[in-house]
């Protein structure tokens, strides 16, 4: 019999705790497939963050270290710098973790050009704690701490992390991708693979921002959530390569 599909060996064969319609599962799979395809699973150490992806160490099929809230880039720095250069180190962080409490750590890891890959999952909310405003929450977006919607005159405008990090000279590669449809998921896979490939080649800091959904906290069904990403989030967070020192851009 011909095998037409099998699960990636980059993920453990487990049921995840993610909500229906959440795209964390897709993004996990893209990372897992990449690690498998690059044949680096046995050389990889992932750093889990705090938030919905806190348990990602249960799912990735490689050595994992769980970091304090926001500190994953610092932990990854420690791991990467003390191990032989052929090891692959990545962080998997949400927007509450990376763009708020962990803003210092991500900026400085990027500024130092740490040879790590950061998968930044942006769903414009704190998911795990129940849908509070994140630095990435869109203006007008209702959350449990902005019940009338984010008001720019009160909370300021959302932070475009990728654009900000792209200003740093030692950053090697930054791309923003989305998971709202199949075509974009294929693009997301390419970006993630590119980032890890750069790391494998010994290039510097690589960062992929992946726009994601949170149906539970957005109060939308899975299909509406995908549409929200497509219509609202992509409008504020434009997709594409923001920096690529190794490419043609």
């Amino acid at each position: 019999m011909k095998v037409v599909f099998q699960k990636t060996s980059g993920l453990q064969d487990k049921e995840t705790h993610y909500c229906p319609g959440c795209t964390h599962g897709i993004i996990h799979r893209l990372v897992g497939e990449t690690l498998e395809e690059l044949d680096v699973l046995e050389d990889t150490i992932g750093v889990a963050s705090v938030g919905c992806s806190v348990l990602s160490y249960e799912y990735f099929n490689c050595d994992m270290t769980q970091a304090a809230h926001g500190r994953a880039p610092a932990v990854a720095t420690g791991v990467k710098r003390v191990l032989p250069k052929n090891r692959i180190v990545f962080t998997y962080q949400g927007d509450g973790d990376l763009a708020s409490i962990g803003m210092g750590e991500i900026i400085h890891a990027a500024a130092r050009g740490e040879h790590i890959t950061v998968i930044f999952v942006n769903n414009a909310t704190y998911g795990m704690t129940g849908g509070q405003m994140a630095p990435t929450t869109l203006v007008g977006q209702k959350t449990s701490t902005t019940p009338k919607g984010r008001d720019e005159s009160v909370q300021g405008a959302p932070i475009r992390v990728s654009e900000m990090l792209a200003t740093l000279d030692s950053v090697h590669y930054i791309e923003r991708v989305s998971t709202h449809d199949v075509a974009n998921i294929i693009k997301a896979k390419k970006a993630i693979k590119k980032a890890f490939s750069y790391q494998k080649e010994g290039a510097g800091f690589t960062f992929v921002e992946v726009l994601s959904t949170c149906p539970t906290n957005w109060g939308l069904d899975p299909e509406e959530s995908l549409k929200y990403v497509k219509d609202k989030m992509v409008a504020y967070y434009p997709l594409g390569v923001l920096k690529d020192r190794g490419g043609d851009n």
Binding site: I45, A67, A74, G78, V79, V82
Partner: peptide, 9 residues
Amino acid sequence: NMVYGAASA
């Protein structure tokens, strides 16, 4: 936290 990473390695 860098210490945490290095220690974990």
